[in-house]
Nucleic acid binder design. Structure first.
Length: 811
DNA sequence: AAGCAATGGATTTTT
DNA sequence: TCCATTGCTT
């Protein structure tokens, strides 16, 4: 159970003086496995970094004995920044990083044992998809039956579950074929010397699993393993941790691994769709026989009206580890709820409210607008733009994902590895060199027949087409020679000129931004070289980290090094910068850290983002918009309980972003996919404590489309409509009549609510031979086109063509 | 080989 | 509605 006593020598430490008892207990835990349940705004990162600092300061571990894992580069950086502000320690020498960053470091150190070229390149999601498309074309795979996107999802999913093609259980022909493609994809990657994100993890895991000395080495080395956002780990990541901690099937009793400190919040698990398993938390407690569990429930972020709302909402989820946020701050402002007639009006209201907040002295960057899906940003952007209010949208392409940058990177990769066919295909005819699809197909067939790369197959190519491609290859080869020995900056500048990329974009009418980005790439490379300290004195770095250790002290004999191909880099804690060329390091950096995705960073601007991307952030004022059935909870997640509970957690995350003021709004109508949708307010409103809320718009008439064109929105606030949706009047907009989803699609203004269609009227009860008794929700069209949306209690909502369905009116 | 119209699909995202 | 992708035209 929780350990609240603190060792004497630690109590005096200034590191601990400002921590609350739970935080202090977590920081000063003994070297045993522990789970920290860290609520939103409870000082989680602080606990993690202070824990590391405390361990180091008290000589309980050396910097080399720490392994600290995060999911994002941002989190890793923050941890390093905070740590170095607490202690004079070289954080870059320590194993603090993302899962993928650390796996990359590990694989570079043991590239021979991992059966990889030392300068292997990393495929990002885009690259992976194009590699799969290329593979499919090559093997004439029907892309109707096997869409590349779906194959990508399949392959990534297998890897996340730790499965190689041989391990995948294929029960049907389709899966068998997918597994074959998976197998071919692996061979292709291996041949080309590239790995995708999943492969970084999987291959690291397998190397640890299958190589006893390497596993033993790392198990002995990492005395303290700290995992951030543990609820987001997938199967493979959990297995990887288990392996490193010596808890897996390969655990050796004589040589116990390090202590695992898992920090997470099951209530903030919102990434199930990408393979995250909250269940890892419970598994961890069971499989590691965790004796220490500490809950951090004291919240330092929000006023209690906000926290009460969050607590009340999340209490509707089952299967929680259980946690309640509390604060010493007062109730603060009530949570304001606004109902608007349209998404447009919702945005208008928001802009007005924001202006007021800004007048009251709140910075624009302290105001965030959160939405469930990206498509919702459009209306809001328009409203902000028209009001001339600066704003910033998160999401979209990041720097290293832009087309022109990807092109430049492809050239750079070809300099390093001519066998990188993905890069070859990307730029062989860009800028255009008169190389057509026909001749490239020829080249690909030739390469396939000889089992070599496209680059190597060129020499065997004949004819005029062959000459053009040979010209390209020669260009790359010449460039490689000319840039050898140059520094990174000069390599990139030279490449940008000689490839013709710059010339191409300079000639393009709208190419100015792209030219700018390419020039930015040179600066990015320069600052990368500065930061990573290439050319820095390696010995000096080792000393400053206080980490100078002989191979033997790290558990490896010189013999092991000979025998198992463990590179010296690993023994100086695997800093890849020591042995890799700056170019390879930069390319790796580009793949693992795609860069910023915010436009106009730094300006005082309203922050727009999805709820997902708001995780981990906080703002003085937060607007949660589109809180409607079908949108939030999203219709695709509402069918099963797990999906709905994840939506609820998502809402929990959204609510807990706010420090002072929280607004939640929903709209009766919304433009989505070119159609006006009529949405009901979200069920989540019913799960919030009424006493913490303030309804700004308790009264609105039923939407005009339901009542007839004449009645507008404006008069709404004055009419005597109370308590949720209209149960007065005959327009019949009753929430109870609608099934989950509550959305009525309106097509070309043919919806009828006030007249009969083929003898039916809305709200009428009908009988269907198969579905039983149901209620008509919507009628649209006329004659043979007439359709009715009917809610059958047993079978859900159906759209039935009235010319086909046999319906009997029920009195 | 480039440019344009038709087509289809449209939660959420990091590495 | 609006975006990316694709097939077809010039």
């Amino acid at each position: 159970m929780s350990l609240f006593s603190t060792p004497d020598h630690a109590a005096q430490s200034p590191l601990l003086s400002t921590l609350n008892p739970e935080q202090r207990a977590a920081v000063t835990l003994p070297a045993e496995h522990a789970l920290i349940l860290a609520g939103a705004g409870s000082g989680k990162t602080r606990v993690l970094t202070t824990r590391i600092a405390w361990l180091l300061q008290n000589g309980l571990v050396t910097p080399g004995g720490i392994l600290a894992v995060t999911f994002t580069n941002k989190a890793a950086k923050e941890m390093m920044t905070r740590l170095s502000s607490m202690l004079p320690v070289n954080v870059h020498g320590m194993w603090i990083g993302t899962f993928h960053g650390l796996c990359n470091r590990f694989l570079r150190s043991h590239f021979k044992m991992a059966n990889l070229p030392q300068s292997f390149q990393i495929l990002d999601t885009q690259d992976q998809l194009s590699a799969i498309k290329r593979l499919c074309k090559q093997h004439a795979i029907d892309d109707e039956r096997f869409p590349p996107k779906q194959l990508q999802w399949f392959i990534s999913g297998c890897k996340e579950d730790g499965q190689r093609p041989a391990n995948v259980e294929a029960r049907d022909d389709e899966t068998r074929r997918k597994v074959e493609i998976y197998q071919m994809y692996e061979e292709q990657c291996q041949r080309e010397g590239v790995v995708d994100f999943g492969e970084l993890m999987l291959r690291s895991y397998e190397l640890l699993r299958d190589n006893d000395p390497i596993r033993a080495h790392y198990q002995r080395r990492f005395r303290h393993i700290l995992i951030d956002e543990f609820q987001d780990t997938n199967r493979l990541q959990y297995a990887w941790i288990k392996m490193l901690a010596g808890q897996g099937a390969n655990a050796s009793p004589d040589m116990p691994g390090g202590a695992v400190l898992a920090v997470g919040d099951d209530d903030q698990s919102i990434y199930a769709f990408r393979g995250a398993r909250v269940g890892n938390m419970a598994d961890f407690v069971r499989e590691f026989h965790v004796q220490h569990q500490i809950k951090l429930e004291q919240n330092y972020r929000s006023y209690s009206n906000i926290l009460d709302s969050a607590n009340a909402l999340i209490s509707h989820n089952g299967n929680r580890l259980g946690k309640n946020l509390r604060t010493d701050q007062g109730p603060g402002e009530p949570v304001r709820v606004y109902e608007s007639p349209s998404d447009y009006a919702e945005a208008q209201w928001m802009v007005d409210e924001m202006k007021q907040l800004h007048r009251e002295g709140i910075d624009r960057k302290e105001i965030a607008v959160l939405y469930r899906s990206n498509a919702q940003s459009r209306v809001i952007e328009t409203a902000l733009f028209n009001a001339a209010m600066p704003y910033r949208v998160y999401g979209g392409l990041r720097f290293f994902e832009r087309a022109e940058i990807k092109h430049a990177l492809a050239y750079l990769r070809l300099l390093e590895n001519p066998n990188d066919d993905t890069s070859f295909m990307r730029v062989v005819n860009f800028p255009a060199r008169g190389i057509g699809a026909r001749s490239l197909e020829q080249l690909q067939d030739l390469a396939k027949a000889t089992g070599c790369s496209l680059h190597d197959a060129v020499s065997a190519l004949t004819g005029r087409a062959g000459a053009a491609i040979a010209g390209f290859v020669a260009k790359i080869d010449v460039l490689r020679e000319q840039t050898s020995g140059l520094n990174l900056r000069d390599i990139i500048s030279r490449m940008l000129e000689d490839s013709g990329l710059l010339a191409h974009y300079r000639a393009e009418r709208e190419g100015a931004d792209r030219v700018e980005n390419l020039e930015e790439l040179v600066s990015a490379a320069e600052s990368f070289v500065m930061q990573e300290g290439f050319g820095r004195d390696a010995a000096g770095m080792t000393q400053s980290a206080g980490l100078t250790q002989s191979p033997a002290s790290q558990g490896l004999s010189g013999e092991a090094i000979e025998q198992y191909g463990i590179e010296p880099t690993d023994l100086t804690f695997g800093d890849t910068g020591e042995t890799l060329s700056p170019l390879v390091a930069f390319l790796t950096h580009a793949a693992l850290e795609a860069g910023d995705n915010m436009a106009q960073a730094g300006q005082d601007a309203i922050q727009l983002m999805t709820v997902h991307s708001a995780k981990g952030l906080e703002f003085d004022c937060v607007f949660i918009t589109g809180v409607e059935e079908g949108l939030f909870p999203h219709e695709n997640s509402m069918s099963d309980r797990d999906g709905l509970e994840e939506e609820r957690r998502l809402m929990y995350v959204a609510i807990t972003r706010a420090r002072q003021r929280l607004y939640m709004s929903h709209s009766q109508t919304r433009m989505l996919h070119g159609q006006t949708r009529f949405n009901l307010k979200s069920r989540f409103f019913d799960e919030l404590p009424e006493e913490a809320l303030k309804w700004l718009t308790p009264k609105l008439p039923a939407p005009a489309a339901f009542g007839g064109a004449g009645r507008g929105w404006q008069g709404g606030n004055a009419s005597g409509y109370s308590g949720g949706y209209g149960n007065q009047g005959s327009s019949g907009f009753e929430s109870t009549r609608y099934p989950a989803g509550g959305t009525v699609r309106v097509e070309k203004e043919v919806v009828r609510r006030d007249e009969s269609v083929n003898g039916l009227v809305v709200k009428q009860k009908v009988f269907h031979a198969k579905f039983g008794e149901g209620t008509v929700l919507t009628l649209e069209g006329t004659g043979d086109d007439a359709r009715a949306q009917i809610n059958f209690p047993r079978h859900g909502t159906k759209w039935l063509a009235l010319s086909v369905a046999k319906l009997t009116p029920v009195p």
